[in-house]
């Protein structure tokens, strides 16, 4: 059962990633692209967690944690750039 669910989840998240990519390319605005990037981060970390479950290991959790934190910081930086131009002031 879990295997099927996991496989389904893998598939869905992969499709989601490809859709994110589409949005990322289509834009049309920078904001859309930043959001797409942020979502790509989130979906990747979801994939990582799934991978951990698939392999029955907690090995990937730190990496997922880092992606979460760094993705956040990256998005903040891009947003701040749009807002103020200068991200550290």
């Amino acid at each position: 059962m879990l295997t099927t669910v996991l496989q389904f989840a893998f598939f869905m998240f992969s499709v989601a990633l490809l859709l994110n990519l589409l949005r990322f390319f289509r834009g049309p605005d920078l904001l859309d692209r930043i959001l797409a990037l942020d979502t790509i981060y989130i979906n990747s970390l979801a994939l990582l967690i799934l991978l951990g479950m698939w392999h029955h290991t907690s090995f990937y959790f730190e990496a997922a944690l880092l992606i979460a934190m760094l993705g956040f910081i990256g998005t903040v930086a891009a947003a701040k750039f749009l807002l103020r131009g200068d991200i550290i002031e």
């Binding site: 990496a63 880092l66 992606i67 760094l70 993705g71 910081i73 990256g74 930086a77 891009a78 750039f81 200068d86 991200i87 550290i88």
Partner: peptide
């Protein structure tokens, strides 16, 4: 991952 984000930050700063 970390190097990636930190260098992107640096580049945004330079941008």
């Amino acid at each position: 991952l970390v190097v990636e984000v930190v260098s992107i930050l640096l580049m945004i700063l330079a941008l």
